[in-house]
């Protein structure tokens, strides 16, 4: 049993926004696999919850006519990794989704909850960062669109105001067309573990040069981050073993990992370089490039 004073369980988004606007103290609960843990740890007392579990309009994945992929925030990780659209166009997101928790958690946990929980280790985050995903956030007055790269404010903190609900994650065609991606999660256990470090890379190779390269890291700074310095360094340079090494080293210019029981700062810095190298080699191979003579 938890310390929950009251729970609202609306069935439409309009109703949910109405309730939230007049009760700004509410805490939103999606799948519940983070909020219920906070309750279990006694971090929330006498909380009033707004459950958005019944908002069916926020579940599912749509492929729009212009190639935009729209993911409802209440879509579970199981639904995402089994989804045809995701596997066909953005398999890297399927890869990230299946790395998360275990089957029970993936059946319950939602991608929107994963983002809004603000964890630096969120398995969906690095991948959504490299995909330049946009977030559709609504309140009673209207809609705003925020790039996910600007949504995180600090460990466990995101820029969501009271009264606002994240409804969709939007991925534009230009951000996945012709791109190859690889997500690597490094953890002590394969299942039921949180990432010690995670790397997502997404790139496009032409004439053995990176015409687009994006690298994002999880658990490497107070928020998930993009390695902008390494990315711009890589642009239009001929791919060689040496270049991959240099790119991987330059990822550290944006990273600032912390020391924790899960892994020391030095070890994490080592992992960042090694895993980036591995991920880069994978996407180079996938896109028909080569780094060795």
């Amino acid at each position: 049993m938890f310390s929950i004073k009251k729970i609202y369980q609306p069935i439409t988004l309009a109703e949910a926004l109405e309730i939230y606007t007049s009760n700004p103290q509410l805490k939103i609960i999606a799948g519940g696999t983070d909020v219920l843990i906070s309750l279990h740890h006694g971090k929330l007392d006498d909380v009033e919850l707004l459950s958005i579990k019944n908002l069916t309009e926020l579940t599912g994945i749509n492929y729009l006519t212009d190639g935009t992929i729209e993911i409802g925030t209440m879509t579970t990780f199981t639904e995402i990794f089994r989804n045809e659209i995701i596997n066909k166009y953005i398999p890297i997101l399927a890869e990230a989704s299946v790395s998360m928790g275990g089957p029970q958690i993936r059946n319950n946990a939602t991608i929107g909850g994963n983002i809004c929980n603000g964890a630096v280790s969120a398995d969906s985050a690095p991948t959504l960062f490299v995909l330049n995903a946009d977030l559709r956030i609504v309140n009673n007055e209207g809609v705003r669109i925020v790039p996910i790269t600007e949504f995180y404010a600090g460990p466990g903190k995101v820029k969501l105001q009271s009264g606002e609900i994240l409804t969709h994650i939007i991925i534009k065609k230009a951000d996945y067309k012709g791109m190859y991606g690889k997500y690597i999660k490094f953890s002590n256990r394969k299942a039921m573990d949180i990432a010690m470090l995670s790397v997502a890379t997404l790139g496009k190779v032409k004439n053995n040069k990176f015409t687009d390269l994006r690298i994002a890291l999880g658990v490497s700074a107070p928020t998930p981050i993009r390695c902008t310095k390494a990315e711009s360094f890589a642009f239009n340079k001929t791919i060689k073993e040496e270049l991959i090494k240099q790119i991987s080293e330059k990822t550290l210019l944006n990273a600032n990992p912390r020391h924790s029981w899960r892994g020391s700062k030095v070890y994490r810095e080592h992992l960042i370089q090694v895993l980036t190298e591995r991920a880069l080699k994978e996407i180079i191979t996938m896109s028909g490039g080569k780094w060795h003579e």
């Binding site: 929950i4 729970i7 369980q9 843990i37 279990h40 029970q104």
Partner: peptide, 27 residues
Amino acid sequence: CGEGECGACTVIIDGDIYNSCMVLATS
């Protein structure tokens, strides 16, 4: 564990497995 780590409380809901400690009964 009571926090979704161990699976001891697994039940099947509409054909899929869930940790029953991570599900509110009202839902």
